[in-house]
Structures are given as structure tokens and as C-alpha cells.
Design a protein around this nucleic acid. Sequence first.
RNA 1: GGCCCCGUCGUCUAGCCUGGUCCAGGACACCACCCUUUCACGGUGGUGACAUGGGUUCGAAUCCCAUCGGGGUCACCA
Length: 745
Amino acid sequence: MGGVDGDPGGPLGLADLDDQGGPLVEEEDQLLVEGIDALAGIGERFGGGGEFPGLALLGRGRLALGGGLCGSLMRLWSLPRAHRGVIVQPMASVERLGGRLWQKPVGNTDSRSKAVGGVDTGGTPVPRAPVDERESALHSRPMPSRELVVTRFAPSPTGHLHIGGARSALFCWAFARRARHDGADGRFMIRIEDTDQARSSEESARGILDDLAWLGIRWDDGPVLRRHQALGTGHQGVNQGQGGDIGGDSRGVGPYFQAQRVGIYNSYIEALVKAGHAYPAFETTEELESRRKAANAAKQTYRYQRPDDVQIGAFNESRWKRAQAGEAHVIRLAVPREEIIVRDTILGDVKSAAGELDDFVIRKADGFPTYHFAVVIDDELMGTTHVLRAQEHLANTPKHVALQKALVRLDNGKPFRTPVYGHMPIICNMDGSKMSKRDKAKIARKAAKDAIAKDGGITAAVLAGTTGIAQKQIADFLAAESDSVDTAEALASHFKVALPEIEIWDFRRSGYLPEVIINFIALLGWNPGMKQADGKDLEKFDLEFIGKNFSVERIGKGSAKFDRAKLLSFNGDAIAGMADDVFVQRWRAWLAEYEPEALARLDGLGADTLMILAPAVKPRAKTLRDTLKPIAFALASDTGYEFDKTAVEKNLLASDRTGAKLLAEFKPVLAGIDAWTPGSIHAAIEAFAKSKGFVGEKGVNVGPIAQPLRIAITGVAVSPPLGETLGVLGKASTMARIERCLTSL
RNA sequence: GGCCCCGUCGUCUAGCCUGGUCCAGGACACCACCCUUUCACGGUGGUGACAUGGGUUCGAAUCCCAUCGGGGUCACCA
């Protein structure tokens, strides 16, 4: 029997039901199901008469399932994921009923749902999960009370939103949204973990929220992000009503900035100390550091040694008095020496042997809680039911479980609950290392060092002068003592090296579309497991789809490498797939933000410039920044571009200046065009080619005139189709450019 | 190094739970051809993987074990 009487380790969650019954479950195992009215029907039908072994009806909406039955019934009724999580009752109520609660032997919980893809006639992808009328009947019944499902994303405001953070946020959002689709009250919450006084900033918090909003991820509970506010005035701007504020505290569990909750943490700290589960410790950082070094030198694992005068469960008054008197100290948790099992929906049970955990710090010397403590307190107080985070946190989780075991709520005396955990695969670089903002530092540092190696005159002081960054900061950065993103960006821009996009902000600047980023990061470690009508895997979808179809059981275990080439391809597809007017609108917005001069130049050419260019640019640009390349000719003035020598030689001068002669001959034809549109220009070129007898087996070959013309107009042999190219420039510019080319020969 | 997690084409993955329909499917990338006024787009086709070794089984990508490989984490950062 896998259960632990009297110590369920928190409410049962998805993990417990993940292995859907089967032979592993012993006969005595029981599962109490309640909270879904419709289940009463099941109970009455199967269990009411008592002739069905392993199933007992305990009242309306409530039944106990025994042994493998719970699994098979779950399967039989295709109970949706969230329902499964919702219907399981915590220990207390089971005890009240005199039942026994078990936690299933979780030996292998990495089971996958059988939801395979299916196809509908319209070509829209639909899940092929077995559709059972009974299931829809179940869905249509109103829930007695909507179960609360709360996920949270809790960034530390020490920089921009990282791509991995965005994925965490997306999955948490999606989980809550999916729960809502399944009838629960799914809520996605944001909490700002600003307990690191030195590194946190409000500006960064605001930036992270902005990035999230840009991606289209909205939160139900959390800091309020006011959008479309006129700068400085506090009045609503022109776009009023379009975006609206995000966030709020409808459940009354805020504030959502941890720095504002220090009082709460302190009262829990005090309670913990007085209960003998935590104690003040007075060692200095230096002392600990030297002990750590000594242990490492002796090739031993360093663990903090609990002082002899500290006993678990006994309030150490003298230490508390010293602390109260103002002596510098931290608070440590007195961790019992016992095995800790983290139940993880994605990974299964992860055991941590007794003694692995030492007495870790829960409140720092500056009076702020550590991450571990604040997280546990807030997740409980804010009602977090499901924690989805990256696997880098897996090693922390035993600490959180230990804390939860030690803590009791001050308001109602109830023990802390353990949320359902799910640790997601880490996002890696193509070389397999963790994708991190340090990657920027590495590249920038290398560029700087290479430059210094070449030119001894370059020093930190010189760089400080040219970049405007403090000399010390640059020196630290070069010595790899700091990985400051700002410094990295400044140096990279100074040495003209490209930094990889790591943070959402980078991708935005590079011209990636938010919906593409969402789509792509959703695929990093998760996939819907569906097929399209043509039998290919479904992998292009939007936020709404994710919110409807997200499921934890389809999150993979292995780390995912971030394939930029595929992202680029997705982005290019999205751009190419946009209607021209939509593209122009978004293109214009991006240009206005990042390349205002280019936009001004384009608009100066004519009101419709972007629209004329759109069909030519869309298939040629993988990102919005890419759009600048095919339109380089338009960005330059009529005399502001160079003629590519090789191209001129090959297309204008070769064969006794054939190209140039042809061009000179074609010039008056162009001058005679009245309606200067891409279509009429193209028609003129074709007609001219035809009149010159450039006709092959496949029809008119405009090449002999097209290439000379292209080079005259753009300077190079590569450009969008000539209709659009000339069309955008206008007749006067076109003539001037041809003239300039011809005279330059 | 200790502890933990993971391991299907170069990359993201489907398949694994419930072994046979898989000499393993899709996507990106790559290669070839077609289309084409250039560059793109598009179309068609192709190269390419079950980490290795043992079991279990009539049968293993799928179940078990070992080995190897990769990653994470070891703070008064989160």
C-alpha cells in the first residue's frame, strides 16, 4: 500500500491519478471522489446497489473507488484532466468519513494520455480523443461550486523577461485557461518576487509585465498594468479602451509585490521560531564561506551543521533574544532528517534522501525572506494549486515541501498544502547549455577581448568613454565578474557584433511576431499531439488553441534546444500569410518603434508606399527587420546608392554593351507610361521584350531588359519584382536613376 | 565531485503507459529537380534517428537491468 496514513503530504493532485489505475493499485486502495454533481449518477448506477465491488456510494456527488477501478472509471468516463485534479479530496474529509486515503504507488507516472490527433472534414484539426456521449453529458451538468485552480508566474524583477520565463508564464496561463474550459475557476496569477533588494527594480517589473502583455498573456490576479496611458499625464491615451488594464486583486490575496509582504513573512518566521522549527543563526558569511571551501578541498559535500543547542521542536529562547536584541543573524529552518518525496506531474516521484537537506536560510540578514520562504508562504496564502516551473527548480522543491510540512496558517490553524508540481524541461542553446542571458555576456566579452588583443590601446577606461558605461563596471565585466546585460549590449554595439536574442524584448526588436513566439515556445517541451487533415502533425496554432488544448501530460521530460532556424521559418510563414493591409499595419508599427527614419523616408515617397511594397516584401522577409533588406533601394536617395561592379559588367557592359543599349532604348517607353502602377510597368517591360523578339519556347523572356533595368534602379542584381520597385520610386525617380546609371558607364 | 533529471533524424518532436499495424511519421534545416526577369515564395522528390549492451517475450523504439552520454543543482540570487 502506497499510502501514508495521517500524512498525505498535501492534497492529491494530478500526479496521483496520472497512472490510471491498473494492476499496480492494490485492492484496499481507495479514492474519494466528490465535488462533481454528475458523479452522483455514476454512483447510483454502479455503486448504489452495492453489487459493484470496489465502489461505494457515499452520498450525493460523492463516491469511493477502490483498486484499479478508479483508474478504469476515469478512463471509461474520459474525465477531463482538471476534473481529475478537482475531485480528489484532501485527507481531512476522508478521515471524517472514516475512509482511508492513499497515495497511489507512483512508480511510473509518466503515462501519456491517449489523445491522438484526428481529422475533421473541414480540415481544422480536432483531437481524436474518444468522444462519448456520457462525457458530454457530464460536461453539461452544472458544477455545484467551481473548483479554484490557481497557477502563478513569479518573476524576479532583475532584468527583462527571458524566453524561458515567457514559456513558464505561457504554460501556467494555459493550464488555468484549460481548467476554465473544463469548468473549473482557473486563474492565472502574477507575483513579483522582489526580495533581492540590491538587484530588483520597479522598472524591470514593469518591463516584464509589458513583455507579457505584448505576447498576449493576460493575468487574472496580480499587479495592475495600466496600458495606453498618455505619458506623464495620467490620462488615458488615444487607444483608450483597446487594451485595458491587466491584473487586479479580485480574490483579495495581494499585495503581489513580495517586498510589500515582509510583515506577513515575519509573523510566520516568528511562529516558526517559537514552534522550534526555525532558529536564528549567527555565523558570518565569511565563516560559512571558509567552511565551504574547506569541505570542497576535502572533496566533501558541504552542509550547514546545525548548532548543538538547537533542537527541532524546542523554542530556542536565548538565540531569539540575541536576535531580538539586534545581533546580526539569519533565520534557518530546522529541517527534520527524513526522506522527502516530491510528487511531480511531469517527472513522477522524485525522492530526496534523509539528510540531503541542510538547515537552509529562510530569512536573510537584511530582514527579507529568501526565495524559498517567500514562495511557500505566498503560494499558500494566495491559493496556488498548481506550480509549473522549469526543471532548474526541481532541486529546490524538497526545501519547499519541508517548509510546507513545518508551516501552519496563522489565520485558521490549518497546515500548509502542497501544490501540484510540474517541472518542465529546460530550454537550451543548440550546444546543449542552458539558454541564459549570460550567453550575451559571453559573446560581448569575447568580442571585446579579441579587440583588446588586437589593439592594446583599448582599455576599460577607453571603453567607458565611448560606451558611457562606468569603467569599473566594464572592468568587472571583462573579468567575468559581472554578466550585466546592459554592459554586454553596449559593448556589442560598440564592436558591432550581434548578440543572440534571449529575452522577449530582443525578439520584439528583431521583428518577431508575438503570436509566433507564443506558438514556438509552446512547442518547446509540449505539443498538442494532433494531426491536420493531410496527416501532418499540427504545430501551427494560437493562444486560444493552447488555452483550450493544453495538458500537462503532454509536456515532455527532455530538455529542448532552441532552434532559431525553425523560429525564423515560423515567423516568415506568419508574415507571408498575412493579408497585405494587416501586414502594412504591423509593419508600420514596428518601423515606427525601431526604424522611424526608414518609415519617414518611405512615407515621403508617397502615401501608398508601404502598401505597394507589401506583396514584394512579405515573401522576402522572415522578420520585420528583414523587410529593410529588399527595400534598401527605396531607402536610398536617387544618387545615394552604388552600382555593383560585377553586376554592371555582366548585365550592362558585356557583349558590347548590349544591356546598356537596350536600357537606353527602353527608357522612352517607360517615360510614356501614364498610369504608373506595378501592373502597367510590368506590362510595358513584357511588351518591350516581346517587341525585341525575346521569346522562347516557354513564352516571353524579359531577362535581357529586366536585369539592366534592375541594376540601374537599385544598383544590384537582386531586388523585388520590377513593377513594385519602379512603382514605389515613381516615374521621376526612375528616370533620374536610369539617367545616372547610363551616364556613369 | 555529491544529489537529481533526461536520452527517437543535425534540431523540435509523433509513437512508449496499453509490445506486433514502425526496415519508425511530421516539421525546421540540408540536397536535387521544377517554376521563375534577379532574389525570394511555391511545388515535387531525397539524405537522415530508436545512445550502447544485456535480459523478458514467439515478437521490443515500446517492459526490466547495466553502461555510456547530456543536462540541472549544490548562496544570506531567484
